[in-house]
């Protein structure tokens, strides 16, 4: 931790820490892809039941950092992560932690809707099945229905649960992916540009959904759209060239940025 770095100081919310609202606590995280230093000493507190947006120009490392939070970077051979990331105070990079179990607690939704080429039902039921979350068929049915309801998709698909998930429209597919992610009852939901491949109407539906998800989950969303960040998030982090430049309440970031780079970005001068 580098107290002289103003961003680091900003990113750590001491009152929230004291109140125990911090869900994920990251300290001094560095990521290397081979020789490329992709994330430079990032420290961040992600609060519970809050939407946190990561913004920044392409290649700034926001997606890379997001993927550290559920150890998806482990699947890339050349990626190396140092520093400390704690979920509810528990170090997720500790030797005893199984990334597979972690990913059930920290769900993820990707940029492009990627339903499995299976039925809608099986898409949602897959996570609970592999984690043994349902003891009976009725339990599983309930998980599927509840997840689809929370993803605001149930009414559209309840009569065709056995049809392939790939046959849905793009927006429906993405909500199906959200249903799939929340079926394992995660505590944190990571979203990597979840609306960038969708039309404006589907995007609005997803944004509305994110706002509802906030009641139960801690949501972290990476987005290219500053309007989107402003609409859905309570807290915003601005990344630039692998560094966390500024982190704070969303209105403050957009109306009164403290760092000149943040100001340049949100006024469209870098990006």
């Amino acid at each position: 931790m580098d107290a002289s770095n103003p961003a680091t100081a900003l990113a750590i919310d001491e009152t929230a820490e004291a109140e125990g609202r911090v869900k994920i606590m990251a300290r001094g995280v560095n990521v290397w892809y081979g020789d490329t230093h992709a994330i430079k000493d990032v420290s961040v507190d992600i609060l519970d039941r809050t939407v946190t947006a990561f913004i920044g120009p392409s290649g700034c490392g926001k997606s890379t950092f997001l993927r550290c939070l559920n150890r998806m970077n482990d699947t890339i051979d050349v990626a190396r992560v140092t520093g400390e990331i704690r979920l509810d105070g528990e170090d997720i990079y500790a030797p005893g932690v199984d990334p597979v179990q972690l990913r059930a607690r920290v769900g993820m939704v990707f940029q492009k809707p990627n339903p499995f080429p299976k039925s809608i039902y099986d898409n949602v039921a897959y996570g609970p099945r592999i984690h043994g979350l349902a003891r009976t068929r009725a339990d599983l049915d309930r998980i599927v229905e509840d997840s689809l309801r929370r993803a605001a998709l149930w009414d559209e698909v309840k009569d065709r649960l056995n049809e392939p998930g790939t046959g849905l429209s793009g927006g429906q597919q993405q909500r199906l992916c959200i249903a799939r992610a929340i079926a394992t009852s995660p505590e944190v939901l990571l979203m990597d540009e979840p609306a960038s491949a969708l039309d404006p109407i589907a995007t609005a539906q997803i944004e509305e959904l994110i706002d509802e998800l906030r009641e139960n989950f801690s949501v972290v969303i990476v987005t290219h759209s500053m309007q989107q960040a402003a609409r859905v998030s309570q807290r915003t982090a601005f990344f630039h060239l692998g560094e966390l430049v500024e982190f704070g309440e969303t209105p403050q970031i957009f109306t009164n940025p403290r760092d000149p780079r943040t100001e340049s970005y949100i006024t469209g001068r870098i990006g």
């Binding site: 559920n70 998806m72 699947t75 597979v100 179990q101 972690l102 990913r103 059930a104 769900g107 993820m108 939704v109 990707f110 492009k112 990627n114 339903p115 499995f116 080429p117 897959y126 996570g127 592999i130 984690h131 992916c177 799939r180 992610a181 079926a183 394992t184």
Partner: peptide, 14 residues
């Protein structure tokens, strides 16, 4: 496609 692998890994498949 890698998206299928990511999807499965993302819900916690080994």
């Amino acid at each position: 496609p890698p998206s299928i692998r990511e999807a499965a890994l993302g819900v916690g498949a080994s």
